Simulated assay, not measured.
Amino acid sequence: MKRATITLPDDLEQALERFVDEQAIPVQLTAVVQTAVREYLGERGYLPSTSKLRIRPAKRGSGQEDVSVSHDHYLSSSAT
Rank of each mutant, 00 (worst) to 15 (best):
Q64D: 03
E39K: 08
S76W: 06
A58V: 10
K52M: 05
M1E: 05
E17I: 10
T30Q: 10
L41N: 03
T35W: 01
G45F: 05
A24G: 14
V20Y: 00
G61V: 01
S77G: 12
R56W: 13
V33C: 14
I25T: 08
V27A: 07
V27M: 07
P26W: 02
T50V: 15
S76K: 12
E65Y: 08
P57A: 12
L53Y: 13
L29M: 14
V20A: 01
A4C: 06
S49C: 11
T80V: 08
I25Y: 11
A4K: 06
Q14W: 05
K2R: 11
T50G: 15
L75H: 11
S68T: 10
D72E: 04
S62I: 00
L8M: 02
Y40W: 07
K2A: 07
Y40E: 05
Y74G: 01
G45P: 02
R56C: 15
A24C: 08
Q23Y: 08
V27S: 05
G45Y: 08
E22Y: 05
E22T: 09
Q14S: 08
Y40Q: 08
A15P: 09
R44S: 03
F19N: 01
H73R: 10
L12Y: 13
L29N: 06
S51G: 07
P9G: 09
A31R: 09
L12D: 00
D72C: 02
S76E: 11
E39Q: 12
Y74L: 06
V32R: 02
V67K: 00
L47A: 08
Y46D: 10
P48E: 05
A4M: 07
G61I: 03
G63R: 06
S70A: 14
R54P: 01
K52Q: 02
L47S: 06
L75P: 06
R38A: 10
Q14L: 11
E13L: 09
Q14M: 09
